[in-house]
Simulated assay, not measured.
Amino acid sequence: MTTYLHQGDLPADALANATAVAIDSETMGLRLGRDPLCVVQLSDGGGDAHVVQLDRTTYDAPNLKRLLTDPAVTKIFHYGRFDIAMFWLHLGVVTTPVYCTKIASKLARTYTDRHGLKDVTRELVGIDLSKAQQSSDWGAAKLSEEQVAYAASDVLHLHALRSRLDDMLAREGRDGLARACFEFLPHRSLLDVAGWEDVDIFAHT
């Protein structure tokens, strides 16, 4: 496994032949509109990871933006709702098409309420992820080796999770429902940005 650290943008030739790319992001916090997007990490499932430390003064990352909006590349997230909202706020693009392993887990793994990435990865892939760097300073001018390794670990297993969850969804007859949820997910993210973050617009009251 090799982890590549890039400044400002993804190289034009990186992930060029991928049809599905696992993506995650690191921010200065979890509040939309307050906390900036700092890092985006990606993997094509082949064992390597690309970690992009964004230029927060411009967010000028044309190659990354092109990938996020490429209709031929499925973007795999775990809780993509937040990442997609952040990409819209800071990069100005709506990410599609998408797959969310957290949504898939909630639809397929109804025997548990533990749908965090660490729990799902441990059960379905047999790997115990470390979350030691989750709350570190992602706005630092220079990322530590531990931060880069942590960022990479969050995307290296999403392809395997997707495969396992797809099997479970099909077994339970919920694969069509999952696809509909994935198609709606970018719109759910835009509702969050527009101010309906804590409101269920489908509820009666």
Rank of each mutant, 00 (worst) to 15 (best):
L143S: 08
Y150A: 04
G139F: 09
L117A: 06
I103D: 05
I127D: 13
E146M: 02
L124W: 06
E146L: 04
D128A: 07
L124I: 08
K106E: 12
A149P: 02
V155N: 06
I103H: 12
D113Y: 15
A132N: 15
H159W: 03
L124Y: 07
A152C: 00
V155M: 07
V120E: 00
I127M: 13
Y111W: 11
Q133L: 06
K102E: 12
K131V: 01
S130A: 11
S105K: 04
D113V: 11
K131P: 02
E146G: 15
Y111Q: 14
R122M: 13
V148K: 00
H159R: 05
S135D: 12
V148P: 03
L117F: 10
L117Y: 04
S130V: 08
T110L: 08
Y111S: 13
K106W: 07
L117N: 06
R114I: 01
K118E: 14
R122T: 13
K142V: 12
D137E: 15
S105V: 03
A140S: 15
G116R: 09
E123I: 12
A104E: 04
A141T: 10
G126E: 12
D154W: 01
D154C: 03
D128Q: 08
A140V: 07
V120L: 05
L158N: 00
L129D: 04
E146V: 02
